[in-house]
Amino acid sequence: MAESERDRDSAGRARSARPRDGLGRPLPYGAEGVERQPEGVVRTAAETLREAQRLLDEGKPFHAHEVFEDAWKSGPEEERALWRGMAQLAVGLTHAARGNRTGGVRLLRRGAVGIGAYPDPHGIDVAGLAAWARALARRVEAAGAGTDEAVDAAGESPRLTR
Rank of each mutant, 00 (worst) to 15 (best):
A133H: 00
L129H: 02
R101P: 04
A150G: 07
G123W: 02
E47V: 09
S10T: 11
A112T: 03
R159K: 14
P158V: 13
G114D: 09
D7A: 09
R6I: 01
H95N: 08
E79M: 02
R138L: 13
G30W: 06
V151N: 04
E77P: 15
A96I: 00
S74H: 14
A90W: 02
E149V: 15
R6N: 10
E3V: 04
A31Y: 14
K60I: 03
H95Q: 12
A143P: 02
S4I: 03
A64G: 07
E79D: 14
G24F: 05
G22M: 05
A17L: 13
A127S: 07
E149Q: 14
T102W: 15
I124P: 01
L27T: 02
A117Y: 01
S10Q: 12
A11P: 03
S74G: 06
R25V: 06
S74M: 05
G33V: 11
Q88T: 02
E156N: 11
G146N: 07
R80V: 08
Y29M: 07
D70R: 12
Y29G: 05
P76V: 00
G30Y: 04
A131H: 13
D21W: 12
M86Y: 00
R15L: 14
E156G: 00
R101D: 14
E51W: 11
G114N: 13
Q88S: 07
S10V: 14
Q37E: 15
L82K: 11
G75C: 12
S16Q: 05
G128E: 00
A52D: 03
K73H: 15
E47A: 15
R20V: 14
S10C: 07
G30P: 01
R139Q: 08
L23R: 08
G85D: 10
A11R: 13
